[in-house]
């Protein structure tokens, strides 16, 4: 056997095993805006997880003697609403709802989109059928599509999740299809075919892992949209119903008291804004960090 040459050996020793995850995380941290976003998301997640511990009142605990207390009141540092419920504990409870709805709807949407996208990209015969269906979904303005679905299924938070999932499918399907189209002609896919790998194995083990980067970005951005849409639908009375401590529903409930107790609407509004902002900037940062031109592979 011919020996490995000196030059090849040198390349070997220079390149240490690099962890891609660490690399992406590092370049994400360098971006100040996305660092702020990460901090905000971390805080929201912590608040959501530890909400029973860090709040002294239940989110549905009424105290009709202490209603519409302002921000900074004793015992209620974010004040209370018109039923005397603690705003801080309602916001914290709303964080759980927003994150759960966001995660589940994005998760289901990505799952559906990945399946459709993989099939459309890989099998040319299915391509036009699936993509016309996707175009059909795209033709509706997002929130209108969600309202339509809720109108059919009825108003509830679960139906909001379903509606937003369906709305997330077409974008994801397009992204995956595009990636699959470029990946399936790569030589390593051809090579897997020549060693006799099945289509399922090729799709799941070789195609999908190579189109994760745009999916991560899409998923993060989609979280922002999903949370915002949940609130919007709840605000319109199509999602979470009062007294549920959902941010959008809280804004709607507070708007009658805009003049004497504006914080009842404004505080959940700020919570929505911060969350959406955080997911958007992290999504932006991820897009830069996962840029294939900065990829060590190329």
């Amino acid at each position: 056997m011919s020996a490995v040459t000196e030059t090849e050996k040198n390349i070997n020793t220079e390149k240490k095993t690099t962890n891609r995850f660490v690399e992406v995380a590092k370049s994400l941290m360098k971006n100040k805006l996305s660092l702020i976003g990460i901090i905000i998301i971390t805080l929201i997640v912590l608040v959501a997880i530890f909400s029973p511990i860090i709040t002294s009142y239940g989110p549905y605990e009424q105290n009709l003697e202490r209603t519409k207390l302002g921000v900074g009141s004793e015992g209620h540092f974010l004040g209370t609403d018109n039923y005397g419920r603690d705003m801080w504990s309602r916001i914290a409870h709303g964080a759980i709802i927003s994150l759960l709805v966001g995660l589940s709807s994005v998760g289901i949407g990505l799952f559906g989109g990945i399946i459709l996208g993989l099939l459309a990209g890989y099998y040319r015969k299915l391509d036009s059928i699936i993509m016309r269906f996707v175009d059909l979904l795209f033709a509706f303005p997002g929130i209108l599509l969600a309202m339509l679905i809720i109108a059919m299924l009825g108003t509830s938070l679960v139906n909001v999740v379903i509606a937003i999932s369906i709305w997330s499918i077409p974008g994801c399907a397009r992204i995956v299809r595009g990636s699959v189209l470029s990946i399936k002609n790569q030589e390593y896919i051809q090579a897997m075919k020549t060693v006799g790998a099945s289509d399922l194995r090729i799709l799941l083990k070789h195609v999908l892992p190579n189109c994760t980067a745009p999916l991560i970005v899409y998923g993060t951005m989609r979280m922002a949209t999903a949370i915002l849409s949940t609130s919007a639908l709840s605000y319109l009375g199509l999602g979470a119903q009062p007294p549920t401590a959902e941010w959008g529903a809280m804004i709607a409930a507070g708007q009658d008291f805009m003049w004497d107790a504006p914080h009842i609407s404004i505080i959940p509004g700020i919570a929505i804004m911060l969350t959406v902002f955080a997911f958007n900037v992290v999504g932006d940062g991820l897009r830069d960090a996962l840029d294939p031109n900065m990829d060590v592979n190329n």
């Binding site: 790569q186 030589e187 390593y188 051809q190 020549t194 006799g196 083990k205 070789h206 892992p209």
Partner: peptide
């Protein structure tokens, strides 16, 4: 027959799955 017929590809940078 695929076991008996194999191929060595042109581009060594494209013929291996970068994530594996």
């Amino acid at each position: 027959y695929k076991k008996d017929l194999q191929m060595i590809f042109q581009d060594p940078f494209a013929s291996l799955n970068p994530r594996q």
